[in-house]
Design a protein around this nucleic acid. Sequence first.
RNA 1: GUGAACGUAGCUCAGUUGGCAGAGCACUGGGUUGUGGCCCCAGCGGUCGUGGGUUCAAGUCCCAUCGUUCACCCCA
Length: 429
Amino acid sequence: MAEPFTAPKGTYDVLPDQQPVRRWVIATAESVFQRYGYRRIDTPTFEDTRLFHRGVGDSTDIVRKEMYTFEDLGGRSMTLRPEGTAPVCRAYVEHGMHTLPQPVKLYYHAPMFRYEQPQSGRYRQHYQLGVEAFGSQSPELDAEVVGVLAALYKELGLTGIVLKINSMGCKACRPGYSAAMREYLTAHTGEICGECRERAQLNPLRAFDCKVPGCKVALQDAPRLPDHLCPECAEHHARVKAGLEAQGIEYVEDHTLVRGMDYYTRTTFEFQSSLLGAQSGIGGGGRYDDLVAAIGGPETPGVGFGTGVERILLAVSRSATEVPAPPAPMAYLVSFGEEARGAVFALAHEMRSQGVPVELDYVGRSPKGQMKQAGRTGARYAVMIGEAEIAAGTVALRDLASGEEKQVAPGEAVALVRAAAAGTPAAGV
RNA sequence: GUGAACGUAGCUCAGUUGGCAGAGCACUGGGUUGUGGCCCCAGCGGUCGUGGGUUCAAGUCCCAUCGUUCACCCCA
């Protein structure tokens, strides 16, 4: 028994009815990004696997157990992009963008792939909108990047959003902190879970992510990152906060905010929404001053964020946001009787050639059925042709809202419908 | 990878202590030989996720499996 095919686990189809909201979210994002001076970049859906090992980091969950990795027919190991930053960095280096005036500000909208167990707001193929700004260490740029994302959420009408920020330090001060954490975790090894014992060796900062109650208690007196920042990082962090305040952006400092990628330095941040359920993170990012060099490029600082389209959509659907209506044809062309079908088909071609969206019947519906379909499509007019119209050389033009109907010459009907179409703001975001 | 709940028509769901598979919506036609929305009538549509088992008899009970959902891990 052949079972019907279904979309692969953790993936989904975006059906026509779902397109308008989605298009609206993406269009809004692009408009905001461009207003802040970011320009779009598209990178391949898959990359050399080594890019992610080096860029994202071997100790991350993403690299250790979530990548869609395959060997191509040439024996190369390729990986479906699990995140957006490393590929954009690769493109920055590959195309010599360090020779351009800095900073170079880029944005993207692309699918990401992670082999995870799906749940609310989490998919194996999900879409992210993101920005990356290269070539400046200025804390104002950190503040701007956060500001871009805040502006996007605001423009989408999202409510119940909180911003958390932290500083991860830099290669001067973080190693000292990591060592202190490792020492602390080792000293408390009896109180923490097995996974945290493993983290103590691999990436001690991640212990802060642990949800086990015992670990939370054990970590209460753990060394705090903010106390270990070098003077430069502390100064940077203070200026980032000042930059947020200058934009009127509220935030809470969270010294336990450790994000999943190894590349972060100094600023990290995450927006969380109360509308989302367990996966409350809606977008986040931070600074990555060592990443470009780590993948073989020139020493280049960077800062950026990624935000999940599905999670935005979920939040939008649960908030009171007004979403634009889907497009409707201007006119539905109805044929009464077989001999009128040819005339209707020709008229449809004529109207479409003139830029007017029209629809007609293709399945031999009854006159009543065609009218019913006309109403269903949301068309403004029905243009009807039958024996009488063919004989008189006219068409019947019916306003479907008012029910008003008149006989006019075909050319006049085209002109009237066309004028109505021109008067309507371009439907279909 | 782990845990729990749930899989019946395109969609949302009902289906009693095991006893002939149902409703609403949607779709098509008719009521109006050429006129939509409301109404009425009819029709179309399901090997009950899949595979085993128990039973005279399984949508219903048992086992397995796949899928979905939610949660853990982690992330967007």
